[in-house]
């Protein structure tokens, strides 16, 4: 019986690969976009403008305080009502990017705030511009604090991408749902789906641990 089911599962491997590809594409793209946006928001949040800080803070709290599934539905079903036509993939990317950006913004802002004011003053006193202070002095030191939780956040993002199956994207999780209709062994199918996610996430988990260990050795900056 189980042998027969396994054989039948082998037949679904092109679908499974497609699902894995979709999961990697979704999380990969939103990881890159979310990192860029999150860094920008984190830098803006600590730039000294109280208005910007509280506006970003409100948005971040809103996103952190609502379920991701609800956010996806809002983007996928409500935006078209307002005249913005979105395919499921774009909606998924927007939702995931936004989620990632909000968490990364907080991680980056916390890192920037952890840099002693004396560092900024020294950079200021030697005539560095605001961008140069950020780029040369503040961010390299902030990264020391931010990098391990950042990589940890990537792992969460990859796992959160499973929620987009709810709007019909054929990612790894949805492939599981499709296959289980043909092969009625939920345990087996979703064990394999789980392994699929783990294979993608585990290297990142190891990387995060490695970075954390390197922190203590580095002179305030992380070399990968």
């Amino acid at each position: 019986m189980i042998w027969f089911q396994l054989q039948s599962l082998m037949g679904s491997y092109p679908l499974a690969l497609r699902g894995l590809g979709m999961t990697i594409a979704l999380s990969g793209i939103s990881l890159v976009l979310g990192t860029i946006l999150g860094f920008a928001l984190g830098v803006l949040r600590t730039s000294g403008s109280r208005l910007l800080d509280s506006a970003i803070g409100l948005w971040v709290d809103l996103i952190r305080g609502t379920p991701f599934l609800v956010q996806i539905f809002l983007i996928f079903f409500i935006l078209p009502e307002l005249g913005v036509e979105l395919d499921a993939f774009t909606a998924g990317i927007i939702a995931l990017t936004n989620l990632a950006a909000c968490f990364i913004c907080e991680i980056v802002a916390a890192g920037i705030r952890s840099v002693p004011t004396g560092q900024v003053e020294a950079a200021l006193a030697s005539g560095l511009s605001q961008w140069q202070r950020m780029r040369q002095v503040v961010l390299p030191q902030a990264m020391r604090v931010s990098l391990p939780p950042l990589v940890g956040q990537y792992v969460l993002l990859i796992k959160d991408s499973s929620v987009v199956s709810a709007i019909g994207l054929t990612d790894l999780t949805r492939v599981g749902w499709l296959v289980v209709q043909r092969v009625p062994n939920g345990l087996l199918v979703f064990a394999i789906v789980g392994i699929g996610y783990f294979v993608v996430c585990y290297p990142l988990i190891l990387l995060a641990r490695r970075l954390e260990r390197r922190m203590s050795a580095a002179h305030g900056e992380v070399q990968l």
Binding site: G118, E121, A122, A125, Q136, V137, Q141, H219, G220
Partner: peptide
């Protein structure tokens, strides 16, 4: 400007 706490860039 020379600071009391040096404020060298540690990295």
């Amino acid at each position: 400007f020379v600071f009391q706490a040096f404020n060298l860039y540690p990295h």
